[in-house]
């Protein structure tokens, strides 16, 4: 016999089973002859599973539909930011075109008799601040990660990690505020800077923001190195620090590289810290002791005052596109290297 429908199948089974049989099956519970042999003397289940299956399918449909809408919005983010910048590509608005950010003079001066929109000073400013932050954060974060992963006693380790994560949880506006109100004055008093707020103060502020990121990612990379590696090295008579530097660090190097790349990306896009702590003046200079203006701070401080749809408005969105692309590229590289680390360690272990 063939089960044509689910309901038919269930009933059919029940009937068929009522034939006398030494091996009574419990589906035959509705047959009085076999009752008592079954643990349950209730009739067969109502064949309600059709409803259940429909709910299951509807549930899957609903969840998938929501997921697709949300994911679509995620992709829309780039599209909508780019859309506001796009008209610059085919026409000149308020004397601004897609080439304005590259045209001489090398000045960003959106207000004034003849507005100037060259983004070179902003790019130099961003790189300067980011570089200072990375130079400060990298050694500190890496050394702390090494200490936590390799040298700290386990009881201490359990405290250090959450403590550094606390730093990650401090809102960037608070860090910016701290540099602006407190740290910048301390620095000026100590070194006698001409400008209280400058690239260095902003860079120090940014370092606060990227240290926890670099620390967490590289600490994860270090702890993911199998114990076997360490034991092999220690068995050969190497000391713990030697093992850490010569064996563990190289083995974890893709993950450490990923940590630096991700930290770099975070620093480039960070807004509130540089907005508060950099002096926010666009000077084209390589000196770390003069005020700077970054790409992100430019958007933050100017978008509130521009004419909607005007050239200046669109240039700011163009900067947003640039930021989006740069950080995406860095995230992608970081993720790749993190994956490479996992492959390397799983392949070797």
């Amino acid at each position: 016999m063939k089960g044509n429908s689910r309901i038919g199948a269930e009933n059919g089974v029940g009937k068929m089973e009522s034939a006398p049989s030494r091996h009574a099956d419990n589906t035959a519970a509705d047959d009085p002859a076999t009752e008592g042999q079954t643990p349950f003397s209730r009739p067969l289940f109502p064949p309600q599973s059709a409803v259940r299956n429909r709910i299951d399918r509807l549930g899957e449909l609903f969840i998938s539909a929501v997921a697709f809408v949300v994911i679509a919005i995620i992709f829309l983010i780039f599209i909508y930011v780019a859309r506001e910048a796009a008209p610059l590509a085919w026409r000149t608005i308020d004397g601004i075109s897609i080439w304005s950010p590259l045209q001489t003079p090398y000045t960003w001066q959106p207000v004034g008799g003849v507005p100037k929109f060259n983004i070179l000073p902003l790019i130099v400013g961003t790189l300067k601040v980011t570089l200072i932050a990375m130079l400060l954060a990298t050694p500190l974060a890496l050394a702390a990660a090494l200490y936590t992963a390799e040298f700290a006693p386990p009881s201490l380790r359990e405290w250090i990690k959450p403590a550094v994560e606390v730093l990650a949880g401090i809102p960037s506006v608070v860090i910016g505020f701290f540099v602006l109100i407190v740290l910048a004055s301390w620095l000026q008093d100590a070194f006698g800077f001409q400008f209280r707020l400058n690239a260095l103060s902003a860079g120090i502020g940014l370092a606060f923001a990227v240290i926890p990121l670099i620390y967490t990612v590289s600490e994860d990379a270090l702890t993911s190195v199998p114990k076997l590696y360490r034991e092999a090295s220690l068995a050969l008579g190497a000391s713990k620090p030697q093992t850490a530097v010569r064996v563990v660090l190289p083995a974890a190097s893709p993950g450490i590289f990923a940590a630096l790349v991700l930290g770099f990306g975070r620093a480039i896009g960070e807004t509130m810290i540089v907005l508060l702590a950099s002096g926010n003046a666009s000077m084209l200079s390589l000196s770390p002791f003069v005020p700077v203006r970054t790409l992100s701070a430019t958007i933050a401080s100017e978008l509130g005052e521009v004419v909607f749809g005007g050239g200046h408005y669109r240039v700011l969105f163009l900067i947003g596109v640039v930021l989006f692309l740069i950080t995406s590229l860095l995230n992608w590289i970081g993720a790749r290297y993190n994956r490479r680390l996992r492959q390397r360690l799983s392949g070797a272990a």
């Binding site: 994911i71 909508y80 930011v81 506001e84 896009g269 947003g320 950080t327």
Partner: peptide, 28 residues
């Protein structure tokens, strides 16, 4: 691809979300 987009989004600067909010939610 979608998973990568979500991961990437976690690293996009928050100021870009501000631009998106203005361009998408308010203007559109």
């Amino acid at each position: 691809w979608t998973r990568m987009a979500v991961n990437n989004l976690a690293g996009v600067p928050s100021i870009v979300f501000g631009l998106f909010g203005l361009g998408f939610f308010i203007q559109t």
